[in-house]
Nucleic acid binder design. Structure first.
Lengths: 208, 208
DNA sequence: GTAATATGTAGTAGTTTTACTACAAGAATA
DNA sequence: TATTCTTGTAGTAAAACTACTACATATTAC
C-alpha cells in the first residue's frame, strides 16, 4: 500500500494526477498538498513512499524545497514534475537529489510509468533524458542542448539575467568589469540563439 | 447531452478537467484537444456547446485563437482557462468575445460552476471578477489593479515589450519617436512599480 | 465649469548596453 | 605535441535606452 503525496498548486493537476495514480497503482494511498507549507505538514503525519513535486509553485524556492524534503525525509522518493524543460533542468534536479524528473508536457502513460518505477526503488529517467545521456557519452557535442553548452560562469550570469539584474548590477555583484559581463551576455545570447532576455527566458522555460 | 471540448496542451490537465466535467454534468460528452490545430479539426466534426480553452498553449496566439473559433463557430460558448491572472486579463478576454474566464488556480468546484453556468447560456464571472466589477462601479480608483491603470496605448506598448521588442522596434512599428516609446515605457514601469521588463512580465503573469 | 490629472507625443542630455576587438590560460583534438 | 576551440577577462566606440522636461488635448473631480 504505497503512500504517495501529490504536490501542485493547481487543484486540477492534483486531481488528475491523483486519479491516474489511483487507477494504475494498486492500493495507492494518494494525498495532496497545494503549498510547500502543507507539504511539510502532511509529510510529517505519516510515512510516504513517494512525493510528486511540482517545482513551478510560487513561493517554492525550487532546489530549496527539494533540499528541505530530502533533509527531513531521507528515504522518500522524489519525482520532480515540472513545466520546465527536462533536457535543460532534468539532470540538474537529479544531481540535486531528486529521483526522477518528469515534464508536465508528458502524457499520462509516462506519469504512471515514472511513479511505478520510483516505487520499485529505481531511478526514473524519461526516454528523452536517457537519450540525452547516451548522446553525452557518444558524441558529446552534437545532440546536446544549448543551455548545457554554457560554461559555468555563463550559466551563473544567465541566472542573474533571468532575475532581471542589469549588466551593471551583475558586474558589481561579481566584481567584474561591465564590459566583461557584457561579453558573457553576448556569448550566452549567441549560444542560445536569442536576442534579448525575454527570448532567453523563453528558451530556458517551457510554457506548458 | 452537452458536447464539451477541453483544450489544453497538458494531458494531465485535460484528464482532470474531463473527469470533473463528466462527473458533474449529466451526459456530458467530453472531447479533448492538445493543440490549436486539433481544436479546429475537432470543432468541425460535430456541434459543440462549450469549449474550455487554455490560452497558455505554445503556438496559440491567445486572442487570435479566440477570434478564429468565434468566427467559425459563432454559437459556441468559450470558457478561457488560463494561468494568467483573472483580475488582469479576465475582462479583456470577455471583451474579446469569451463567455467566461477561469483562472487555473481556482478549485474544482469553480470549474464545475463555470461550465454549468455557460451551458445554461449565461456568462460566467468568477467571484473575484464580480467583485472587481463592483469596485469599478463604486470607488473606481481604490481597489483596481495596476495593470488596469494603463492607458490603451500603454497597454499596447506593454504587449510589445512582453514580446521582447526593443524600444526602437516599437517606435518603428507604431511610427512614433523613440523618445515617445521610451516615455511610455517609463510610465508603464512607474504604474506597475517595476524596474525592468522581467519584473513587468512577472507582474502580469501568474506563476501558477 | 474650472482646476487638477491623465494621456499622447517629443527633444535633449546623460547612462547603459552592445559590438567588435583582444588576449592569455585552459581544454580538446588531430 | 602542436593546433584549434573555449573560457575568463577587458577596452573602446557606437548604439540603445532612460531621465527629465515640455506641451497640447482629454478626462476626471470638486
Amino acid at each position: 500500500m504505497p503512500n504517495i503525496l501529490v504536490v501542485d498548486d493547481q487543484e486540477v493537476v492534483r486531481y488528475g494526477t491523483t486519479l491516474i495514480l489511483q487507477k494504475s497503482i494498486d492500493d495507492a494511498q494518494v494525498s495532496e498538498a497545494g503549498s510547500f507549507e502543507d507539504t511539510l505538514k502532511i509529510l510529517s503525519t505519516k510515512k510516504f513512499d513517494l512525493v510528486i513535486l511540482d517545482i513551478d509553485m510560487p513561493g517554492g524556492n525550487n532546489h530549496q524545497m527539494l533540499d528541505v524534503i530530502r533533509l527531513r525525509h531521507p528515504d522518500i522518493r522524489i519525482l520532480i514534475f515540472s513545466s520546465y524543460d527536462e533536457q535543460i533542468f532534468g539532470w540538474r534536479y537529479l544531481e540535486a537529489g531528486a529521483d526522477g524528473f518528469l515534464s508536465k508536457k508528458t502524457g499520462i502513460e509516462e506519469i504512471k510509468n515514472a511513479a511505478k518505477t520510483l516505487l520499485r526503488d529505481e531511478k526514473y529517467l524519461s526516454p528523452t533524458l536517457k537519450q540525452t545521456l547516451l548522446n553525452n557519452f557518444t558524441n558529446k557535442k552534437t545532440a546536446t542542448n544549448p543551455i548545457q553548452r554554457l560554461s559555468s560562469r555563463e550559466n551563473n550570469i544567465m541566472q542573474l539575467l533571468i532575475k532581471g539584474s542589469s549588466v551593471a548590477e551583475i558586474a558589481d555583484k561579481l566584481s567584474l568589469q561591465i564590459s566583461t559581463v557584457s561579453t558573457y551576455k553576448k556569448r550566452i545570447f549567441e549560444k542560445l540563439q536569442v536576442s534579448n532576455v525575454i527570448e532567453m527566458i523563453e528558451k530556458v522555460q517551457l510554457y506548458s
